[in-house]
């Protein structure tokens, strides 16, 4: 039992640290750069992706013996885009503001390489429980990275965190615009590298 728990925990933490999709694997860059204008937006995008990731991992893992090998990629894409449509409709119904801010990037979760990558590399080879955990781990890693980038950009750009003022007078607007996204991600990647090589 102890060993079993350890294995599951490892699947979960690998997605957050060792295989962090943003800082280590450098996957899913478009939503990372485009939607992290504030902490809340980044987190919203992360949670939407997390949902799609867990659900599609579960379904693909269940269907892994049914899907013929030759058409597996189109089949995965259909599964993923179905869940993306579900998320899109749910967000439109319940979180209209976030839906409007994220805009075209919600349907674009379909082409987020993290999701197809996990389907191909993990869910198509492992059981349902492990696949769900893997989706959760990678999804949490993605959400965490997006939230951190969002916080840094919001603080530097607007002087706020989650919409609460830290200091008066705002900040350098450039960090909320697209060049700021490149800078913040680039420097955060350096910091992440530094921290993870130290612990090893």
């Amino acid at each position: 039992m102890q060993k079993y728990m350890g294995k599951n925990l490892k699947i979960l933490t690998d997605g957050i640290l060792k295989n962090n999709p943003t800082f280590v694997l450098v996957l899913g860059m478009c939503p990372t750069l485009a939607t992290t204008t504030s902490a809340a937006n980044g987190m919203g995008m992360g949670v939407a992706t997390l949902f799609v990731l867990v659900m599609s991992n579960i379904v693909i893992s269940l269907l892994k013996n049914v899907i013929p090998d030759k058409v597996r990629i189109p089949a995965y894409i259909v599964v993923i885009s179905s869940f993306v449509t579900v998320v899109q409709l749910l967000m439109q119904a319940y979180v209209q503001d976030l839906y409007n801010t994220l805009g075209v990037f919600i349907p674009l979760i379909v082409v987020n390489c993290i999701i197809l990558g996990r389907a191909e590399a993990f869910a198509s080879k492992n059981g349902v429980w492990a696949s769900a955990l893997d989706g959760l781990g990678v999804g949490l890693g993605f959400t965490l990275s997006l939230t951190i980038i969002g916080i840094v950009r919001e603080v530097l750009g607007n002087g706020q965190i989650f919409g609460l003022d830290i200091w008066q007078g705002g900040g350098a607007l450039i960090f909320v615009l697209s060049p700021g996204a490149f800078f913040v991600l680039g420097y955060l990647m350096v910091v992440f590298r530094k921290l993870t090589t130290k612990t090893n």
Binding site: I174, P179, F182, F183, L185, G186, M189, V190
Partner: peptide
């Protein structure tokens, strides 16, 4: 990747 991103940031500016 980091230096590529920083370069892209300057290009975006």
């Amino acid at each position: 990747v980091p230096i590529a991103l920083i370069t892209a940031g300057i290009l975006a500016m």
